[in-house]
Computed example of a mutant assay.
Amino acid sequence: MSQTPLLDRALVEEATKKSGLLWVRGTGPARALWHVWLDGAAHLIGDGPGEQPFPGLADGGTAEVTVRSKDKGGRLVTWSAAVRELAPGTEEWEAAVAELKGKRLNAPDAERMTERWARECRLLRLTPQGAPGTLPDGSLAAVPLATPATTRQPVPAALPRLLLKRGRRAGK
């Protein structure tokens, strides 16, 4: 038996575990999505109010997952995934949500987050299929997707002086 499939699987698992974001492409453009790795698959929560959207990912479909390096941000590996939606309340759903809850940053309702996820969101399991693909030679750069998010306004001109003045006062 060849060791290549085992090494491929180990590469996918280790790279995906360590990366905070995955680039996932279903039927639409690729999106950066946060996830957790659990029981041999990546788990994503979203498609609800205030959560990450993942259009183009459907139960029973497939997706292309690109994993980036946590250190340098470059592509490490690309793999094909079978997409399966987990039903709320199942043992598998509860285990995945327990892991995801610890990784969710800035949740507006941390105490009731899991109930909201069960009511309003989808939990997807992306299971690797076959061997990882080869990385493309090009950059794959694309125009950013439209979003309602906005950037911060420029820092007020007086702010640096105020901060410096406060620092001098504390040093006396």
Results as ranks from 00 to 15, higher is better:
Arg166Gln: 08
Thr147Lys: 04
Ala142Lys: 08
Ala131Cys: 06
Arg161Lys: 12
Asn106Met: 12
Thr114Met: 09
Gly130Ala: 02
Ala107Arg: 02
Ala149Met: 10
Gly138Val: 09
Gly46Asp: 09
Gly61Phe: 02
Arg116Lys: 10
Gly56Val: 03
Lys72Phe: 11
His43Glu: 05
Ala110Arg: 05
Ala158Glu: 15
Thr62Tyr: 05
Ala158Arg: 05
Gly130Ile: 05
Ala146Thr: 05
Pro160Tyr: 09
Leu100Phe: 01
Leu57Pro: 09
Pro108Lys: 00
Trp117Lys: 04
Gln129His: 07
Thr127Cys: 10
Gln153Ser: 09
Pro136His: 03
Ser69Ile: 00
Glu94Asp: 10
Ile45Ser: 12
Met113Gly: 00
Arg161Pro: 01
Gly50Val: 03
Lys70Asp: 15
Ala63Arg: 07
Lys101Gln: 12
Pro53Gly: 07
Ala141Ile: 09
Pro49Phe: 11
Pro144Leu: 02
Glu99Thr: 00
Lys70Asn: 14
Gly133Ser: 13
Leu164Pro: 06
Ser80Trp: 06
Ile45Phe: 11
Ala98Glu: 14
Thr78Pro: 06
Ala107Ser: 15
Asp137Gln: 10
Pro144Arg: 03
His43Tyr: 07
Asp71Ile: 10
Thr62Leu: 12
Lys70Ser: 15
Gly133Met: 10
Gly89Met: 04
Glu94Trp: 01
Lys103Pro: 07
Glu51Ile: 04
Thr150Leu: 12
Asp109Leu: 06
Ala81Lys: 11
Thr114Gly: 07
Trp79Gly: 03
Asp71Arg: 06
Lys165Glu: 15
Leu124Gly: 00
Leu140Val: 06
Val155Tyr: 08
Arg68Pro: 04
His43Val: 06
Leu164Arg: 15
Gly56Asp: 08
Pro88Lys: 06
Glu64Tyr: 05
Trp93Ser: 02
Gly46Lys: 01
Ser80Gln: 13
Glu64Asp: 12
Lys101Ser: 10
Gln52Asn: 02
Cys121Gln: 14
Arg161Ser: 10
Ala58Val: 12
Asp109Ala: 10
Pro55Ser: 02
Pro49Gln: 12
Gly138Ala: 11
Pro154Ile: 04
Thr127Arg: 14
Trp79Gln: 09
Arg119Thr: 11
Ala95Trp: 07
Val155Phe: 07
Gln153Tyr: 05
Trp79His: 11
Trp117Thr: 00
Gly60Pro: 13
Arg116Ala: 13
Thr150Arg: 14
Glu92Arg: 11
Pro49Ser: 07
Thr134Phe: 08
Gly102Glu: 03
Val83Asp: 05
Gly50Met: 04
Lys70Gly: 15
Leu140Phe: 02
Thr66Val: 04
Trp37Lys: 04
Leu105Trp: 03
Trp93Glu: 01
Asp109Gln: 10
Gly60Trp: 13
Arg84Val: 00
Arg125Met: 14
Trp117His: 06
Ala110Asn: 03
Ala107Cys: 14
Trp93Ala: 01
Thr90Asp: 04
Gly89Lys: 06
Arg84Pro: 03
Arg116Thr: 12
Arg84Trp: 01
Leu159Arg: 02
Ala63Asn: 05
Leu76Glu: 08
Ala110Met: 08
Pro88His: 03
Asp137Lys: 09
Asp39Gly: 08
Arg104Thr: 15
Trp93Val: 01
Lys72Glu: 14
Ala157Gly: 11
Leu135Pro: 05
Glu64Ser: 14
Cys121His: 08
Pro108Phe: 00
Arg122Tyr: 02
Pro128Asp: 03
Thr90Val: 06
